[in-house]
């Protein structure tokens, strides 16, 4: 077969909404785009463990501590599924981590903001996991099989995280004046970064036609952002809190909420590395990796010794 006929077969599969599997032929661009997207997603999961991990030792009740530990553990698990999915495309986890540590690979900018109070555990679960769900649900039907299957598992857990986050916010919002202030402060700080999670406006990011065609993307950034805002405004009413956007208004004609101008300068600035915690997050990941080097070496050396001993015993027998 010629490359041309490989391409035709691939296109047919995409058109039939069949999944592409690791052994199938795929265009180079498809492979590269997926590696970039899945590894970025995996990095976001593990860097995302840090802002929330920051409150595990200080969680205000034993039940909240258990739920938070379980949540952060889930995020590690998501990282694991996603690294494995990316590995099926012919890149190793070590290579991906090297790209993260060198700053070549990106991760979600939202994790470059600090978690300064307990309420941030509520705001992150509710808003950040909430926005992640909006972005990720369509990926459960993405064309690449291992990615789609990983996303099905991830999405189930994310919706649990979102409920837990909302419950923290609700408890604070119904609590004392100080707790309400904590909740409002967290909402004020996390709202704009959360809606930036959907990426630049459509006008500035013409959806790559191929990503749409490959079902790596199904909705535009602005479509998803609007959907998230519409849902979240209603949830904020239940909390009795105020979203920090004075231009937020129901638009009868559109059937959606209008919202104020997003500060894209801030967004690009954080992407470039100038967010409040970019350096800290990356340094923490690098430090964990470097300080773990001797541990990984020991595990490898021991496994090798055991295998050699087993071989010796087998040949002696």
């Amino acid at each position: 077969m010629t490359v041309h006929s490989f391409q035709e077969k691939f296109d047919e599969k995409i058109d039939r909404e069949d999944t592409i599997e690791p052994r199938d032929w795929m265009p180079d661009d498809y492979r590269k785009t997926l590696i970039r997207q899945i590894s970025q997603h995996a990095h976001s999961e593990i860097v995302g463990m840090l802002p929330e991990g920051n409150w595990i030792t200080r969680a205000p009740s034993l039940r909240r501590k258990a739920v938070l530990l379980a949540k952060v553990q889930d995020e590690g698990g998501h990282g694991l599924y996603l690294y494995s999915a990316a590995e099926t495309l012919g890149i190793t986890r070590d290579e991906m981590l090297e790209q993260l540590h060198s700053g070549k690979a990106k991760y979600s900018s939202i994790f470059n903001y600090p978690t300064t109070t307990w309420a941030d555990m509520g705001a992150i679960g509710w808003l950040v996991d909430g926005a992640a769900i909006m972005n990720q649900v369509p990926l459960c039907r993405t064309s690449y099989g291992p990615y789609a299957r990983a996303m099905v598992r991830v999405c189930k857990e994310e919706s649990f995280h979102q409920r837990q986050g909302f419950e923290i916010m609700l408890t604070l919002a119904k609590g004392t004046e100080e707790q309400k202030k904590m909740a409002q402060d967290a909402l004020d700080r996390w709202w704009w970064p959360s809606i930036m999670m959907f990426g630049p406006p459509d006008a500035e990011s013409p959806n790559s036609e191929s990503s749409m065609r490959w079902r790596i993307k199904r909705f535009s950034n602005d479509e998803l952002r609007q959907k998230f805002i519409d849902v979240t405004v209603e949830q904020t009413k239940i909390l009795g809190l105020t979203l920090p956007d004075k231009d937020l208004k129901w638009n009868e004609a559109r059937g959606h909420y209008d919202y104020g101008a997003i500060n894209w300068e801030e967004f690009w600035n954080v992407v470039k590395g100038n967010g409040p915690c970019n350096k800290e997050r990356l340094e923490t990941r690098r430090k964990a990796w470097e300080e773990g080097a001797w541990v990984r070496e020991a595990a490898l050396a021991n496994a090798k010794k055991r295998a050699e001993r087993k071989n010796k015993e087998a040949s002696a027998a």
Binding site: I46, M49, L50, G53, I56, T57, L69, V72, Q73, G76, G77, G79, L80, Y83, T284, K287, A288, W289, E291, G292, A293, V295, R296
Partner: peptide, 17 residues
């Protein structure tokens, strides 16, 4: 739990948590 997010390898991070 102080190890959470700082383990030497992801699988062990998860195991410790």
């Amino acid at each position: 739990s102080e190890w959470c997010g700082h383990g030497p390898v992801l699988e062990q991070d998860i195991a410790l948590t």
